Amino acid sequence: MSTLYEDVGGYDGMLRLAAAWHERALADPVVAHAFSHGFRADHTERLAAYLTESIGGPPWYSESCGTESDVARLHGGNGPHEEMDRRGIGCFDAAIRDIDLDPQSYPGSRLHALWSAGTERFAQHSDGVEDIPDGLEIPRFDDDRRDAG
């Protein structure tokens, strides 16, 4: 049996995926708007840590960066942006291919589901973040296991 985290290549694979997504997001004229106010120099590493934790890897994001409540507050309160969300998911799907995973394969489809679910969760708070409770845990998408062979 292997985990999704192992199938993606562990933290190194998540870091490659986060870097590929970030590059594509900045190149997309609609998605790049989300970064027009600037972003942290360690954005890629923080995204990789979040994704790592989400797929069953070590809880590095929770231990060093914050909770799901913090992430939701960072991404909420910016009004609805359906086109940006769709294009952001498209950038993520392309980033999956950039790291040599097939988006239709087990790891690729699970990563797509993870990103899409996160996009939907954060879109629920597009009008404001006041209703986000403290202490939410990062959702885990590591419940699926499959034969390694």
Results as ranks from 00 to 15, higher is better:
S2C: 14
L4V: 00
Y5D: 03
E6L: 14
E6G: 07
D7H: 10
V8N: 03
G10R: 13
G10I: 13
D12L: 13
G13C: 14
M14K: 06
M14P: 01
R16M: 12
A18V: 09
A18F: 06
A19Y: 12
A19Q: 15
W21T: 15
R24E: 01
A27P: 09
A27C: 10
P29Q: 03
A32P: 10
H37T: 14
H37K: 15
G38H: 00
F39W: 08
R40Q: 02
D42L: 03
E45N: 01
E45G: 05
E45F: 05
Y50K: 00
S54P: 01
I55F: 12
G56W: 00
W60C: 08
T67C: 03
D70L: 14
R73F: 10
G76H: 05
P80Y: 13
P80M: 13
H81W: 14
E83I: 12
M84S: 03
G88H: 02
I89Y: 02
F92A: 05
F92D: 00
A95W: 01
R97K: 05
D100P: 04
D100S: 04
P103N: 11
P103D: 11
Y106M: 14
P107R: 12
H112P: 08
A113Y: 08
S116M: 10
E120V: 13
R121T: 11
F122P: 06
F122L: 14
A123L: 13
S126L: 10
G128W: 04
D134T: 06
P139H: 06
P139L: 03
F141G: 00
F141K: 07
D147A: 14
G149S: 14
